[in-house]
């Protein structure tokens, strides 16, 4: 599947998934995180041994848990969009409910992980690796909260029949934001939890 996906030709023209306003927001988010990643790489270059030892200080179980929650939530959202395109509003709402449940798994794991971190001495004074880790992951958490609020909104709109197969731009725009938030986590996760 992935090989075929990667090799099939791309259209020279295309559509804007969601709407332009959401993409302005998404590129602001991407720019913000690109700057934070620059901070990460510079800090890592200056303290390679500290960053190499960093992943062993964090809970890999928590990091993997966030990843699985976000990926599964994103999968539910993608299904919800397809269900709406097929005029299956109730199925769409069910998929969105699944997306919300898995999405809520992220802050729940965060709460558990922060308690675990503090119990293991990983607070703001625990060195450059931990500070950079909190800097990026808490910023990402804020973006997840925005996404969960947006998810609640599109669930309300779907439940009240505001979207149809022909007009569900708001749902698509939310899906784009949620997948981008997922993409950013897929970058953060290996940087802090895996890279030696």
């Amino acid at each position: 599947m992935s090989a075929a996906t990667l090799t099939s030709p791309m259209p020279s023209t295309g559509r804007i998934p969601g709407n332009k306003a959401m993409w302005v927001g998404i590129f602001c988010e991407v720019t913000e995180f690109a700057l934070m990643f620059a901070v990460y790489f510079i800090a890592r270059a200056h303290h390679p041994e500290v960053f190499a030892a960093g992943p062993a200080r964090l809970s890999l179980l928590a990091g993997t848990g966030y990843t699985l929650m976000l990926l599964t939530s994103g999968w539910c959202v993608a299904h919800a969009v397809h269900a709406m395109r097929a005029s299956r509003q109730q199925a769409c709402l069910r998929w969105l409910t699944g997306a919300l449940l898995f999405g809520l798994g992220y802050p729940v794991i965060k709460l558990i992980e922060v308690r675990w971190n503090l119990a293991h001495g990983l607070d703001g004074s625990a060195g450059i690796f931990v500070v950079t880790y909190y800097y990026l992951t808490f910023n990402h958490l804020i973006h997840v909260f925005w996404g969960l609020l947006g998810l609640g909104w599109v669930m309300l709109r779907t439940g009240t029949g505001s979207y149809s197969a022909d007009d569900h731009v708001g749902l698509e725009a939310f899906a784009c934001y949620w997948h981008t938030t997922d993409i950013i986590w897929l970058m953060i996760f290996p940087l802090f939890y895996l890279l030696p």
Binding site: T5, G14, P17, H179, I183, L186, M187
Partner: peptide
């Protein structure tokens, strides 16, 4: 290895969840 796994995962999300393959070229 970590970078390669990351690249494959990002591409899969971009193409199959975010539907970038059918998006306008600038966004893509």
């Amino acid at each position: 290895l970590v970078a390669l796994v990351m690249a494959v995962k990002l591409r899969l999300v971009c193409d199959n969840f975010l539907e970038l393959r059918t998006a306008t070229p600038r966004i893509r």
